[in-house]
């Protein structure tokens, strides 16, 4: 919990940490595929290209085709883009809201804390997936950004709780007292004294939220409530299941999207474990 590792030193230990390197490499690999992959295909994602229907990967269709003859590779790389977008925006928004509420509750304490705590607990108890579901169900047209917004607005309580607890313990430290005594405004104290001292924590929270947002989006997409105008990995899995990819044995249709999500989210978790090792010397010495 003492994230006072200076920058250069942090980079050195971060680089020496195998888990962090492995996780980062995997995430960057998929990010590369998401960014560059769509440039390598000229097929429209939904066009019925292959008259033979579902076909295994080949030189023409790198990841094979769906039972409608659509190019799986094209759908996959576009879906990957959407996944990163959802992770970044949805996870980012959840982290920001969590920070706002966590800082406020942890720093102000008292009644503000009490009210925010109840709010956090209420949103925590509500199965957010069900709320997303009912909200999405009523929207006829849904965009990726809207999905990010939904996820961001419902996933923050985890972050808020963790950040509140950290802020709480930092609030009474000497340097914060000093800042307070020297007449610094609360907002400034939070951003110049408290936030930098829990930076590692915030980074790790964001990483977890990033992965959580991707999983949540995949679940929503799978149940048919994803973006109506875009490709997504969850949607690929849904069409695969609904149109009989399993009995057809069209593994190339349903393996890549799930594998990519598992790999990205898994890599993010591994990165977090690595970061924990780096930031938390006590754990570091164990391994």
């Amino acid at each position: 919990m003492t994230p006072s590792v200076p920058g250069r030193e942090f980079l050195y230990f971060a680089w020496r940490n195998g888990k962090l390197r492995f996780g980062l490499a995997l995430v960057l690999f998929f990010l590369g595929v998401a960014l560059l992959g769509p440039l390598l295909t000229h097929y429209p994602p939904l066009a019925y290209l292959n008259p033979l229907g579902a076909e295994a990967p080949s030189a023409t269709y790198w990841l094979g085709t769906t039972c409608f003859g659509q190019d799986v590779y094209t759908q996959f790389v576009l879906g990957l883009r959407a996944a990163f977008l959802v992770g970044l925006l949805g996870g980012g928004m959840a982290t920001l809201i969590g920070m706002l509420i966590g800082f406020m509750a942890g720093y102000r304490g008292g009644l503000v804390d009490e009210v925010l705590n109840v709010l956090t607990n209420v949103v925590l108890v509500i199965p957010t997936f069900a709320v997303l579901l009912i909200a999405a169900a009523y929207l006829q047209v849904r965009s990726v950004l809207m999905e990010c917004l939904f996820i961001g607005l419902t996933a923050w309580p985890w972050a808020a709780r963790a950040i509140r607890a950290q802020t709480f313990s930092l609030r009474t430290r000497d340097f914060v007292d000093l800042a307070r005594l020297s007449g610094m405004r609360p907002l400034k104290i939070v951003f110049t004294e408290i936030a930098p001292n829990m930076l590692s924590y915030l980074v790790m929270t964001f990483i977890l939220q990033f992965g959580g947002a991707i999983l949540m989006a995949a679940t929503l997409d799978f149940i048919g409530l994803g973006p109506t105008n875009a490709q997504s990995l969850g949607l690929m899995m849904q069409t695969a299941v609904l149109w009989g990819a399993l009995p057809l044995g069209a593994w190339w249709w349903f393996i890549p999207p799930g594998l990519a999500i598992t790999a990205i989210v898994g890599a993010l978790y591994v990165m977090n474990v690595g970061l924990d090792d780096v930031f938390n010397p006590r754990l570091r010495e164990r391994s």
């Binding site: 992965g211 969850g234 899995m237 799930g258 598992t262 790999a263 989210v265 978790y269 474990v273």
Partner: peptide, 14 residues
């Protein structure tokens, strides 16, 4: 870690 990173439906599909 592998299991927690898997989307539920994908593990189900597999």
């Amino acid at each position: 870690y592998l299991f927690t990173a898997m989307p539920y439906m994908w593990l189900a599909i597999l």
